[in-house]
């Protein structure tokens, strides 16, 4: 058994038979793997005694769940009301342009992924982008390139 499979078995074992534990289980799997691997779904269903479709139904319902892996540098652009009014869309478009990916995608080299989120709750800093876990306040299309520099350098070093 690979290490990943073992981790999955571990999570499932802890929650065996808890039908209402479906969401916490999926959250845990995602925390462990960074996304919900396709192969995990039938195993979750089996361990809870439910149909795989129910697992898929929940996995595709909630915004938190992702079915594809994220880039090493995951970027979230806040699209809450305050950020929208302050030009959040221009920031998102600038990021799409700079990274050459669309929102919801991961770059082919796996370095960056881009996501829009509804509100991260620091409206006084609008518009806000989050790269990895660092919050970038009062963003603008002009500041995007500069904000990406350290992450690009890091990625280059890794390659």
């Amino acid at each position: 058994m690979t290490e990943k499979e073992e981790q999955l078995s571990h999570i499932l074992e802890r929650h065996r038979g808890e039908r209402n534990g479906l969401i916490p289980i999926l959250l845990e799997i995602q925390r462990e793997f960074g996304y919900l691997p396709k192969e995990a779904m039938p195993r979750v269903a089996e361990s809870l005694g439910i149909k795989p479709v129910e697992v898929w139904g929940v996995a595709t319902f909630f915004n938190q769940f992702r079915l594809t892996p994220l880039g090493r540098n995951h970027i979230k652009v806040c699209m809450g009301t305050a950020c929208h009014l302050a030009g959040g869309r221009l920031v998102l478009e600038a990021l799409e342009r700079e990274l050459n990916i669309k929102v919801g995608e991961t770059s082919p080299d796996g370095h960056f992924s881009l996501e829009r989120v509804a509100c991260i709750g620091c409206c006084m800093l609008a518009p806000v982008a989050v790269i990895k876990d660092k919050i970038y306040p009062k963003m603008s299309s002009f500041k995007v390139e500069e904000a990406l520099i350290p992450y690009r350098q890091e990625s280059k070093a890794e390659d």
């Binding site: 534990g21 479906l22 969401i23 959250l27 909630f62 915004n63 769940f65 509804a118």
Partner: peptide
Amino acid sequence: AGAFVSGEATALVAAMEG
């Protein structure tokens, strides 16, 4: 797990039931 509709009482209960 993030769904605006979960703020609705019966929807929230459904989410809690997995």
